[in-house]
């Protein structure tokens, strides 16, 4: 955990951040070339299928960031180091962004392919509940000005919310299987052409670098916010001391 923290420190220095930014841009460029030019259009779905190269990585980032929220929440509860709270907060914001993105992209793809924006498919429904749970998490982060209390409360929600997700998923899976109303069309199994798979894997890698970059930026902003709050407070603290003397 200490090593992870130190690694985090290196990555969030200004030079580390710039390096991550450049790497993210390059990776996204490569991914765009692979998925728009190199990979062939899908035999059945045509060009629409290319949405997969952003939809799947966005969904991956959503799950990755909520897992990071869970891990850093546990780390915060164990160590009481405010650094872990900043990591959880940054990761939750990125997670909500990419969950929403994955849902919107999925809906855009679903309309021409499934013929509907939305279907109550277990994966879709669980992802929507995930979005709602972490929107609640971010809302709780706004209620208190006491940073220690805020950190502790959000860490508890970060843990409880994550543990809840498998139960929600199970309940939705059963709910669907006992109430099959419409047939859900699925991609034709795991067969996928080589260049498409490469494009997908590169896209997932590129998005992961974007995640690291956004984390670095958000952590720096978090530190600056805290410093600003401290500096805004310190002259007044001085006044109180003067008055007390």
């Amino acid at each position: 955990m200490e090593i992870a923290a130190r690694g985090l420190g290196t990555a969030t220095s200004r030079s580390g951040e710039r390096l991550l930014g450049v790497a993210a841009l390059l990776a996204l460029g490569l991914s765009a070339t692979l998925s728009l030019v190199v990979a062939p259009p899908d035999a059945l779905q045509g060009e629409v299928q290319r949405l997969m190269y952003v939809h799947v990585p966005a969904a991956w980032l959503a799950y990755l960031s909520f897992f990071v929220v869970f891990v850093s929440s546990v780390a915060y509860l164990r160590t009481s180091r405010i650094r872990w709270d900043r990591v959880a907060a940054a990761s939750a914001e990125i997670g909500v962004l990419f969950t929403a993105l994955a849902i919107v992209l999925g809906a855009l793809w679903g309309k021409p392919v499934w013929g509907t924006w939305w279907t109550w498919d277990p994966r879709l429904t669980t992802t929507a509940m995930l979005l709602l749970i972490y929107i609640g998490y971010l809302a709780v982060r706004r209620i208190t000005d006491n940073p220690t209390r805020r950190a502790r409360w959000s860490a508890v929600i970060g843990v409880v919310g994550f543990v809840d997700v498998p139960i929600v998923h199970l309940s939705v899976v059963w709910w669907r299987s006992l109430h099959q109303q419409s047939t859900v069309l699925r991609l034709g199994g795991p067969q996928i052409e080589g260049s498409m798979l490469t494009a997908l894997l590169v896209a997932v890698g590129a998005f992961t670098i974007v995640f690291a970059y956004l984390m670095a930026v958000r952590l720096r902003v978090g530190r600056l916010e805290e410093r600003a709050a401290r500096e805004a407070l310190s002259p007044r603290l001085g006044e109180v001391e003067e008055a007390g003397r």
């Binding site: 509940m129 749970i133 609640g136 809302a139 209620i143 809840d164 139960i167 929600v168 939705v172 059963w174």
Partner: peptide, 18 residues
């Protein structure tokens, strides 16, 4: 913030509802 508590709790208890 009256709406905050239900916003947080209702998604969490989805399994109970279902």
């Amino acid at each position: 913030r009256e709406a905050l508590f239900p916003t947080l709790v209702l998604p969490l208890v989805t399994p109970v509802l279902v």
